[in-house]
Design a protein around this nucleic acid. Structure first.
Lengths: 338, 338
DNA sequence: TTGTATGCGTTATCAA
DNA sequence: TTGATAACGCATACAA
């Protein structure tokens, strides 16, 4: 591994000049610059990260993070992934401001503005899909504050990247599991969250598209639960009483716990095929009790870590990202694997 | 973040003395040591990794790695995990010697000895389960070269840790998938690898134990394929011809490709429920074609990275590990999630 | 346009 | 038993 010192020696210049070339500071004679670049290439010079880190301790990149509130424990894992990565990057001057607010355009809007006042250099956000948010994010981008969409996306907003699952495919996966885990006619109850959230709508489409390929599936009841446990408890109770033929349930988003509590009051474990998403503690509990058959996971830790990694490398290295979409892997968990 | 300098100032001593205490070099007055330790605790002092890395550039920890040969592509991913982590640790003087040899006691034995001659400081190995290997590893341990068992384990050998899956549970998971994905009587063909490998035997036990809980399962054919594709092709062909009632297959280990090629010659896709382990490229291909229903994965990348991380922190920090068993998570992949 | 000096936090060597 | 000082590789303020 060559060092700046060695490059300087070989080029017959001082370390300072090499540094100027390396970091594109300008003010270097074109010829000397060419020589230095040639020698750096020859020696395959890469800056030593330890040296960089040590010298750049005082530099600070302040990165704002806006996630859904603690009502939704799924974001605990996303948050954890961000914190892990932040710890790793703290050496290099990465500073974080995390806000967890309601999934609501007004709350998000005011939080974005508050963070901008705190002089953040970049914003990572799980955005509500609305015009007001989109235009606010566009303003940020033009003001030189890059934005990364995490876990959910906005229509019509310029952002550096989207990091999260392929929602359409996650819906298809749910349908595929139902196909694999049932035989004969299936009478299905479906609980969706809030169709105003872009990913939820996409997931539902993927689910229905895939299901329609086989005629044995019948969605006999479909309710929007707005991720509320109490509401879901009531909805599922009514659903099962009104449609005793239901032999499978699909929870498109959150509030699995409320739904399964209702289920457990009316049916035995394993009597229905129940498909859910994500691996929050309450879902794990219901899985252990036999009320959730399978859950589809989307690597929340990876999502958080990746988003911060991308943002930080963009801010510090300044170079554009290779892609716009960074999709997390999906996997299935059952009782034995949790 | 406090620094050594600050600690020294607060304790009224020099950096050198703080360093002696910090790294347990001895030769420090008991009272001063106590004071320094107290202050370090008060200030929650943690050494700055950048400083450590920069100062310890010349230190080299040479770590030997012995994995199964390239015949088994599963270990490609394990190897990749190790390389990723090695890259991350290269700053701190981590040097690697990777050998991929046949899963055979003689080959392993001579490779171990060759690595010892190369002056390795630690050994990470996917060990063959035999007395000769066990005693060799014990000799290493007593000679001060720590050993970590990766992905498979040895009986009767002292090793720092085992990093890998819970094989018994992975067998139970396979059985659970069969239970979920079939209805009515199931006539099962099973292909096992080499029962001399500890994990394979455990996995088979987990599978059979779990299956025996339901009387509808009948293992009508069971063959040992020694992970050989051609052999498996022949075995499966004969198996399906002799037992046309077979409606499910379980591949306990490798050579899924050969088996599925045989299957595809005799049956339509999705006609049988086929459960496999791991996510090697050939299995992915057979999954896309519809000949593999589900595969159980065990985080090979994590396993490799974790093993090296543990070994390196043991060598450099010198402290004992918190646990002996580091089990990888299991997850299920189906066609839609690969 | 270029060179020099200094500091980041830790470790190691030498001197006291 | 302790202290002072010079590296390690890079960045930067200042001097020329």
């Amino acid at each position: 591994m060559a060092t700046i010192k060695e490059i300087a020696l070989l080029a017959g210049v001082s370390r300072g000049t090499v540094d100027r070339v390396l970091n594109n500071r300008g003010g270097v004679n074109a010829e000397t610059e060419a020589t230095i670049r040639r020698i750096m290439a020859e020696q395959k010079f890469t800056p030593n990260p330890a040296g960089v880190a040590l010298a750049a301790q005082k530099k600070k990149y302040k990165i704002g993070v806006i996630l859904f509130s603690k009502m939704n424990p799924f974001f605990d894992a996303v948050n954890q992934g961000i914190l892990d990565k932040a710890h790793e990057l703290s050496l290099f001057g990465c500073e974080l401001i995390v806000r967890r607010v309601a999934y609501d355009p007004q709350a998000q809007l005011s939080t974005i503005r508050a963070l901008v006042k705190e002089q953040i250099h970049g914003l990572i956000i799980a955005p509500y899909n609305s015009e007001s948010i989109a235009s606010e994010l566009n303003q940020l981008s033009t003001a030189g504050i890059p934005v990364i969409a995490l876990n959910s996306d906005v229509e019509g907003a310029h952002r550096l990247a989207y990091v999260g699952p392929d929602y359409y495919n996650s819906g298809k996966t749910a349908a595929a599991l139902l196909k694999l885990m049932t035989k004969g006619p299936v009478h299905l109850g479906v609980l969706t969250g809030d169709q105003k959230i872009l990913g939820h709508a996409q997931r539902f489409n993927g689910f229905l598209d895939s299901l329609s390929e086989e005629s044995r599936f019948h969605v006999v009841a479909h309710e929007e639960n707005f991720d509320d446990d109490q509401r879901t408890y009531d909805l599922v109770t009514r659903m099962l009483k009104k449609h005793p033929e239901i032999n499978a349930l699909y929870f498109l988003t959150a509030a699995v716990y409320g739904g399964c509590r209702a289920l457990s009051a009316l049916r035995a474990p394993k009597e229905l095929c129940v498909i859910t998403h994500d691996e929050v503690p309450t879902t794990v509990e219901m899985m252990e009790k036999g009320y959730v058959t399978a859950t589809i996971c989307q690597e929340p830790l990876w999502q958080g870590a990746k988003a911060l990694e991308l943002m930080f490398s963009y801010l510090s290295d300044g170079k554009q990202l290779s892609q716009e979409l960074f999709l997390s892997k999906l996997s299935v968990q059952i009782r034995e694997t949790i």
